[in-house]
Structures are given as structure tokens and as C-alpha cells.
Write a protein that binds this DNA or RNA. Structure first.
Lengths: 217, 217
DNA sequence: CCGCAATGTAAAAGCCCTTCACATGGGAAT
DNA sequence: ATTCCCATGTGAAGGGCTTTTACATTGCGG
């Protein structure tokens, strides 16, 4: 734990990049002590400024968390879009990557995930926040669209519903078993496998032939 | 909003039932402002005692929340067990009730649900807490057991996995769309229907004939 | 009836949040 | 290059929450 002026070296009166520093501090602190145990003053100390300085960049503590959540959704969307890759090389393989990518994000970026889904940020705090969060769902929705298109046109389920199902299942697993948090439950198998099995069963229920190998493990 | 000495009438120096009063206060306050916006001092005020009084009953604020969570798991287990009713009159109908009961609990008792799943209570804060929370899962597990038993013995999936899948899906839906919270997302259909459809698809994927009418609505 | 233990209170130290008046200096306009 | 503006940071202060400690009250068992 070094102290004060991290990274940007030897600052004088002005920090130079306080806003970014605060976001990084928030991520560190949330990862360490959860979104609840995170304090505005801590972030200021972490950045080496007085407790009042952050107010020049954020209306209050919640605004900072909301910004972290927004950035989280951006990174999340990027990760999902990259994993989905427009359904290449084939829809099933891409869909599989998509789910894993979701869990992977929750595990790799617990601080972002916390801020996004567990910090109790009102989605309408910032209209930008709501929109950014929608964009992540758009990827899921597009994937569901392509998935549903594989089914016979007759009795095809609404893609939106399928997207919501997959999202719920994935979020449920991430939320209950995702991180190694002491607060979470133990599991007889890794969450990725749990999810993969669930999705395979669900897709079979939709009428999709088990195309992708389930036992690649 | 009446003030002080609620219910138990005209107290003198001693409250007489402070512990219970604190739990009720916590429930009110959590329901109102979320688990984060809940303060120990508020609860004391609500009960009409000094800010130090609660410390005679709980080590600290977190201990109170943990107790609320514990009571929540008890009520939750009772609700689930009642809905499941040992699989009567038939497994599918009971299973359907079970899922609805889960969502219903999340909606009817948002304060309990928050304390149980969103307040970041370390499950091992109190060994009793962990055990109580396990008991709720036991009901789900038993239901999954009976459900799986309907399948042909060959290639039968592990009941534990099925229970985890259903739990995750249900919790995911409850968590993302469950309450009317401003913080939650809008949905093109009621969460109960979303869950019912998901479960039907999942069960079909398991190889269960669609026994129960899906369109009872 | 007495005295203990349980329960509640008051006061105080420490921390956090937030605001306000003031300080500093980076950079645009001249 | 100089000047001045305003974005950015500081220090101090008010108010609230948390938690501890010494003290007050009282129910209840012996």
C-alpha cells in the first residue's frame, strides 16, 4: 500500500486527474470491502486529496458509485459483444461463449458487478446510466434473436423472453455462487458448468438439437 | 406514523420488548429505504429508546440485520414448504406453486428478501444463520428429488443440480425484476409468467412431458 | 424485603458527509 | 509575456451515526 499521489507522480496543489483516480479508488475499495463499506472519504484519502475535493467531480457518494456502475456496464457490454461476436462461427458456440463471458465478468470484475447490480443504485439516477445498462441487454437480445431463428417458425418463442430467461439464469448463478466471497454459498461444481448445463437443458426444451458438444470439458 | 412506545403501550424506563421492536423497525426501514439506508439509530428512534439501547440486544448494526435475515429465512422456508406440500396433489402442480411462492415471498416481503440476499450479510456471521438458510434450500432440493424421480432412470440428472438451476433462475428473476423498486427493470410480462415459462421450457428440456397445463392463465 | 442482573440512559470520542469561504495555478485572451 | 478567470483543491465547521463507558432504573428470584 503506497500512499498519496499514485501513478501520476508528485502532484502539487492540483491532482490533475482526480476523477479517474476516484473511480479507481472506488473499484479497489468496493472489491475489498463491498459497496456498503466504501466511503467517500476513503476514496479521497486513497487519491491523496482532502475529503472535500471529490465534491468538485461528483455531487455525492452515490454519484460516484453510479459512475462506476455506468463504466461497468460499458465494459460489460464490450465483453459480451466480443464474446458473442455476432454469432460466429456458429450461433451455438457463440452463445456458449456469451454465457461464460457473463460469469467471467462477474468473477473478474466483482467491483464493477457489485456497483452494477448490488449497490442499489437507482437506474434513473442518471438517464445515461439506464441507457448504458440497456445496451448490455441489447447484446443478449440480439443473441436470443439469432438463437430463436434456428427454430422452426411454427410456435417459435419470443426472442425477448428467451433473452430474459438466459439473463435471469445467468445473473442468478452469478449472484448466488459467482464470486468467492465469504458471503456466497458453496457449490458442488464450478458455476460455469452449472450454467452450461442449465443452458443446454433449456435449449433442448426450446427444441434445439444438442448441436454443441456438452462435454468439451 | 405514530411515535415511540408502539403497540406495547406506555412504557416506563424499560421497553419490555425491545428486541422484537428493533426487528420490526428494521423491516419497516429496510422496506422503505433499502438495506443500505437503514441505520441503527433510526431503529432506536423508531422504538422510542436511546441510541445506545439496541446494543443490549445486538452486538452491532450488522448483527441486527443478520437476525432479520435469519427470521427471513425461517419465514421463507415455511412459505416454500407450505407451497410444496410434499408434492401434493401431484409433483408438477406442487412444483409450480413452489416457484410462484418464491416470487411471491420476494414481492410480499421485500425487506426480508433484501436482508437475506442483498444486504451483504456474511453467511457465517452466525452459524445459525447459515444453517437456517440451508433449510430453505432443503425444500427446493426435496422438490427437485421428486421431480427427477419422474424421469426414466437412465440418464437421470442429479437432483442437486436441478435444484440449483431452479433456484438460480428464480432468484435471478426475483432479483432483476422482482420488486416494483424504482431500481429495477421494466418487464413486458409479469415475473410470474416469465418464471413459469422458463420452468416449463427447462422441464421439457429435462424430458418431462408437459403434464401440467401451461395456459391455465 | 433485598440485592442482583438485565435493561435503558447520558455523555463522549471518533468517523463520515457535506457545505462554505478561501487558496492556487493552468490556460486562454490579449 | 502578462493578466485574469475559473476549475480544482483546502480547511474548518455543523450535523449525524456508531460504539463505548459509567451510571440509573427496575423486575424478579431468594
Amino acid at each position: 500500500m503506497t500512499w498519496g499521489r499514485r501513478g501520476s507522480g508528485e502532484r502539487g496543489y492540483h491532482h490533475g486527474n482526480l476523477k479517474e483516480a476516484l473511480v479507481r479508488a472506488a473499484l479497489e475499495l468496493i472489491a475489498e470491502k463491498g459497496p456498503a463499506g466504501f466511503t467517500f472519504a476513503d476514496a479521497a484519502r486513497w487519491a491523496g486529496v482532502s475529503p472535500a475535493a471529490p465534491y468538485r467531480h461528483y455531487r455525492d457518494r452515490d454519484a460516484l458509485i453510479a459512475d462506476v456502475a455506468k463504466r461497468g456496464f460499458e465494459a460489460f457490454t464490450a465483453a459480451l459483444a466480443k464474446a458473442w461476436d455476432d454469432g460466429r462461427p456458429d450461433v451455438m458456440a457463440a452463445f456458449d461463449r456469451l454465457g461464460k463471458s457473463y460469469l467471467d465478468f462477474a468473477k473478474r470484475e466483482p467491483a464493477y458487478y457489485s456497483a452494477m447490480f448490488e449497490a442499489g443504485v437507482p437506474l434513473d439516477a442518471d438517464p445515461q446510466l439506464r441507457e448504458t445498462s440497456e445496451r448490455a441487454f441489447v447484446v443478449l437480445r440480439a443473441a436470443a434473436e439469432k438463437l430463436v431463428a434456428l427454430l422452426p417458425a411454427k410456435g417459435r418463442p419470443p426472442a425477448l423472453m428467451v433473452a430474459l430467461h438466459i439473463w435471469s439464469m445467468t445473473h442468478g448463478i452469478a449472484s448466488l455462487f459467482g464470486r468467492g466471497d465469504a458471503a456466497r454459498r458453496a457449490l458442488p461444481m464450478p458455476p460455469e458448468e452449472l450454467l452450461e448445463a442449465a443452458v443446454l437443458i433449456y435449449l433442448r426444451g426450446l427444441g434445439l438439437n444438442e448441436g454443441v458438444a456438452s462435454g468439451r470439458s
